[in-house]
Write a protein that binds this DNA or RNA. Structure first.
Lengths: 169, 169
DNA sequence: TATTGTTATACTCTATAACTATA
DNA sequence: TATAGTTATAGAGTATAACAATA
């Protein structure tokens, strides 16, 4: 790949391939153990860690890239009785999402296998020091991406549509 | 997340979120600049780096998780005239995939923006030393995952009906 | 018998645009 | 006018199973 020094190239490829393998393995595990997609798991975990209730937009943040995508996933979770949706008393435009007991149970059911898998796939070959370092590096990369104006440097020439969708969040 | 020490938890979350953001940003760029999905880009890159021709199974390795998925993507690339498929003279079961001039041109068109994006999103906040370290750590994680018995250890898949029946008890 | 690849099919997910309703 | 959320719909991608041909 011209334009990227070998060191960076290697790091980039390792990152991409590892992330792809990890995502695939995790999806298998969540599906098998609790019939959840990764996104559904993330949404439930977010509610789990937020004392149970969040508004749709709060819930979406960082997990899903379109409003309708969240509505779709929330619809599935609601149909499975893992969450409920109700109007927000404080803002009649918003809807508050609440995790149900069944939702918590589903997380409880899935989590041990998930933790075990992550431990085996990503942390097994790393020392405690390595883990700290990795957390630091990836944390910086993540923060960089969060801070990036998503489309700013993308060539203006081609499609205006893609940009609009992202920018509107 | 019970069962995972805070350090590991932080590293895991940073990794997952960064990977998700990166994937999304890269897909936008490839689509906008060259009308390619990430997978199609990876397949073309693989051919690009392999002196032009590979067998379907060689091509699939590490990029795609099912045979039919590769056939589908190869079909799209062939329809776009970025690759050709022909019987392998050395093994009549196999088919050899070859990148076309148009395929190379497409890569040439997409690569500058891609490199620029990756540089900005992942390498900007890292020193040269950091990059080496990251490459080392993620390389080890990747190798660990490659070594894992992919499906053999997973519990036999149940049918959807069985799962429903059990869940409703 | 095992392997390579394709096809048929059904399913999941994503995203745009149009819409309602409230701030 | 802007924001929160839903719906309709269309398209992209994925995976399993059945299949044909070759090793």
């Amino acid at each position: 790949m011209p334009g990227l020094p070998p060191r960076q190239l290697g790091a980039y490829f390792a990152l991409v391939e590892a992330a792809s393998l990890l995502q695939h393995a995790v999806e298998q595990q969540l599906k098998a153990d609790g019939d959840l997609s990764y996104i559904q798991f993330q949404l439930l975990m977010r509610l789990f860690g937020a004392d149970g209730r969040l508004t749709m937009t709060e819930l979406a943040d960082g997990v899903v890239y379109s409003r309708s995508g969240l509505t779709y996933q929330a619809g599935l979770l609601e149909k499975a009785a893992l969450i409920t949706r109700a109007p927000d008393p404080r803002d009649d435009r918003a809807t508050v999402v609440t995790i149900t007991d069944a939702g918590r149970e589903r997380i409880d059911r899935v989590l041990p296998g998930h933790v075990e898998l992550v431990r085996r796939l990503v942390f097994a070959p790393l020392s405690d020091q390595d883990v700290s370092t990795l957390g630091d590096l990836m944390g910086r990369v993540r923060d960089q991406m969060r801070a990036e104006p998503p489309r700013s440097a993308a060539p203006r020439k081609r499609s205006q549509r893609n940009r609009d969708a992202r920018d509107s969040r």
